[in-house]
Design a protein around this nucleic acid. Structure first.
Lengths: 217, 217
DNA sequence: GTATGTGAATGTGTTCACAGCC
DNA sequence: GGCTGTGAACACATTCACATAC
């Protein structure tokens, strides 16, 4: 069992393993090999073993891994067992898409509030056809940010506002005390070193695809 | 000027450079240094220079880069000049969020159609408060996929459906002839080698954050 | 025999530091 | 002097291959 310096790709894969292991566990699977995990998430089995080996020896040589045990261990590493309050800033289509996404709660992420600069105009309108916002999910104006973050002990904020207001929202989030930010806006945010930002940028992804398509000719 | 083996992170950064350079160009900036670019996108200047050097010598030693020239060159690499027809499968909150997102067209990505398994139930309802879908954006049933992909020469599909139908949609997309897929569903897709898939997974990103928060204690 | 765990080897990406050119 | 372009050094990540344990 070593510590110190976990490669960041390893952590990303851990999340994939966790998802698959939970499914396998629900299906009542007992023993699983690194090979089966690898096939399921599209990663070489040696990589799976190495990833897990950073955190301990979870398997049984000559046998495999006990699904239930491994699942628990990995979930503990990712803190899936505990519930993380998160907030979403921006109640446009994207913000609502995220707020109504049930996959978050399944993995321990609890959207405790939505924020918007014009909360009154859109409070729980009926959206025909698609899921509506949870009844009990409050939509607050931005000046409630500090209060909510502190009261609910929020550590993570999700930015789902247009590019031109993203930096200002990021500043507000940092100011309010969150430690980590997911940013959906297509801008590079400027934040202090102790804040972790992860960008989710559709345009960049599309451009990588178009670059690669262009290369093939 | 070398070719062969461009690091994939380089391509991702190229997209960030392009965004910034276009802004700088619009602002009428003439000359820019690798350092200024680096500061703007949060990357060391040596990295900026190395990234660009994979594709040619775009700068002037002792001076910097001509913004207009560099902008054109980078945009050409990313194929931003040409228009890419893309389709979105899934017209839930997420699909609509993507379809109404104007940033795509700015960068040459033209959403030519939305697909949904129940297109009639949601055809252009009025969404109060937020942007409605473009009037001329058709919402088709899934069995129109092949026809649209072939007629519009679509190379990229965006999967915005729930996890349990994502693989089946991916199969349909591959079958229809798209070359690249952006997948928002939290599953690992199984596709042939010649298809490029890029996953955009909020849950994984959140779990990396919660892992890192957990590590700090 | 079989599957894990892991150093060693390899491969990939970043940073350094300086030669080359303005 | 200043800034680019780039080989060489370094750091990081993956893969190999085998010792180890069941």
């Amino acid at each position: 069992m070593k510590v110190l310096k976990i490669p960041e790709p390893t952590v990303v894969r851990l999340s994939l393993y966790s998802r698959f292991l939970n499914q396998a566990n629900d299906r009542g699977m007992d023993i699983i090999s690194s090979d089966e995990i690898g096939v399921a998430v599209g990663i070489p089995s040696a990589q799976v073993r190495k990833d897990l080996s950073y955190f301990g020896e979870f398997g049984i040589r000559g046998v495999g891994y006990r699904v239930k045990d491994l699942c628990e261990q990995v979930d503990k590493l990712l803190c899936v067992n505990q519930s993380w309050p998160v907030i979403i800033i921006g109640a446009g289509h994207l913000g609502k898409a995220l707020a109504t996404y049930k996959g978050l709660l399944d993995r321990g992420f609890d959207v405790v509030a939505l924020f918007d600069s014009h909360p009154n105009e859109l409070e729980h309108e009926k959206d025909s056809g698609t899921d509506t916002l949870p009844e009990n999910l409050p939509i607050y104006p931005l000046d409630m940010l500090n209060k909510v973050v502190q009261e609910k002990q929020v550590k993570m904020g999700i930015i789902a506002v247009p590019a031109d207001s993203a930096q200002s929202i990021a500043d507000d989030l940092v100011q309010s005390g969150v430690a980590s930010i997911i940013n959906f806006a297509p801008v590079v945010l400027n934040v202090p070193d102790h804040i972790e930002v992860r960008n989710i940028d559709l345009t960049v992804n599309l451009e990588v695809l178009s670059f690669n398509l262009g290369m093939r000719s």
